[in-house]
Design a protein around this nucleic acid. Structure first.
Lengths: 262, 262
DNA sequence: GACAACTACTCGTCTATACGAGTTTGGGTA
DNA sequence: TACCCAAACTCGTATAGACGAGTAGTTGTC
């Protein structure tokens, strides 16, 4: 018994002025929304859809491509098209940089992931001096050169975040901050030890579609945007002592902030 | 003299194993990135690209569709394909709900937009009582029914945000909050007048691709994600007195938060 | 039983063609 | 001049076919 004719998908409306490939996409979308196809389920193959609807393959592919850009499905070469599984989400709370969290030896990322039962990993670690972009320079008070710390974060072998920290050289050069592993509590702990008592962080959040580079680095499925977060750390003198530029797979994160009502 | 051969676009590499339509997309993307096509510029037409590269039209369309899903270009039926203009961005600061901002008569949205020189507008206003979804109910302490206030915000005639506020009926029913226009300072001012002194807001931020409904409501171009923000307002007794569910066109917003380092 | 080869199925890329629908332009007519 | 209309251009939708490449299961041999 063919899987499609079992009533999951209906027929086309030839009188409708809605394009055929949109009608097909509508039916598939509805079936997914209503749970008739569940997370990770395989959709009918292109040829099955071709037969069911009596249209050409390109039309079916057009429908599937639409669902892909909506982030509803992912296609896997040689296997099929699957309802996109929603990965476990990492919640970033606004107190994640509270001083009390810096006591512990391991980085916040590791601790938190361990607690959540996933396997954390940090790779592509790179620390170097470079000339800042105009935007970074402006945020840091126009230093000519900065220390850049690049790293990628993975959970259960899946890359979820890519981050670069920039610090003025006069602060970071020759300190543990310039080491690949800055030690317990991370660079914020080191900054405070160096006399830069932190006062507050400014965070800017944007969302957009990823660049081809970002798709590669984060192994992003089609239809998954990125969250772009730029954090500036200020010390009690008001000086910007670090800028952290972070790109996150949007389907892996929810950011949480608490605002006073005063 | 044909506009393309003027050196903006190069030739294909037949030895490359990168798909032809990706190579074409790469060249167009690079030309856009390097500013050889600027914001709002018209790209070469499909037939011009067909001729320049010597490929079939579907291949060219495939390239352009790729750039569309990346949010780099928008196509306009009958006119051409254009480099997507970056609209002016609305910055949401974390102090936007500070009590001092509630004094003024007009809503924060109107005041801020006026100041920025854009023409603000609020439409699709709808206030009604309804049964909350499971998620909303959980956030509000499981009321059986809630007051829902829906509205859409526009800047210079472009919809940028769609929001729904939910309040427990025992708080909102029969008050100015249940009126289409709740008066100066908005519903937060009314809540405080009603004795619910606000203590803090919790905000959750996600980014994802829009649903077909959201694309319609916000008139979103292809390749533009949405920012989904859920704010819960708590009074000084710890009770959740309002949940605001907001969907924003991601290309129109940057969210800004300030976190204490303590 | 282990392994290699084959086969059938999946999606990926590309061609060639056709017609429809929206926009712009310019020419012709009143 | 003002207006209409047709032509020429744009992208949108759809067909039919071909071959490539990745996956998985089956078959057959050793």
């Amino acid at each position: 018994m063919p899987p499609i004719s079992s009533g999951v998908l209906g027929a086309l409306d030839p009188t409708s002025d809605r394009a055929v490939f949109r009608q097909i996409a509508d039916q598939l979308r509805e079936a997914i929304d209503k749970g008739r196809f569940k997370e990770g389920d395989k959709l009918p193959s292109e040829s099955e859809l071709v037969e069911h609807y009596g249209v050409s393959r390109m039309t079916v592919r057009n429908s599937l491509s639409l669902l892909q850009t909506e982030g509803l499905v992912v296609s896997e070469h040689g296997r099929g098209v699957y309802v996109r599984p929603r990965p476990p989400v990492r919640r970033l709370a606004s107190d994640r940089f509270a001083r009390r969290h810096r006591e512990q030896g391991k980085s916040a990322f590791i601790v938190e992931a361990d607690a959540a039962g996933s396997r954390p990993e940090v790779d592509s670690l790179e620390v170097r001096e470079e000339r800042p972009t105009q935007d970074i320079a402006a945020r840091l008070g126009s230093p000519r050169r900065v220390l850049a710390r690049r790293r990628r974060y993975l959970l259960d072998n899946r890359p979820v975040e890519f981050a670069v920290s920039y610090l003025p050289l006069d602060i970071a050069r020759g300190t543990p901050i310039a080491e690949p592993n800055p030690g317990p509590g991370g660079i914020y702990a080191r900054l405070e030890e160096l006399g830069h008592r932190l006062d507050h962080f400014d965070e800017e959040i944007r969302a957009r579609m990823p660049s081809p580079d970002e798709i590669k680095t984060l192994r992003l499925a089609a239809g998954v945007p990125v969250i772009h977060l730029i954090r500036t750390a200020h010390d009690t003198t008001g000086r910007a002592v670090e800028v952290c530029d972070t790109v996150m797979a949007a389907d892996a994160y929810v950011l949480a902030y608490q605002l006073p009502a005063t």
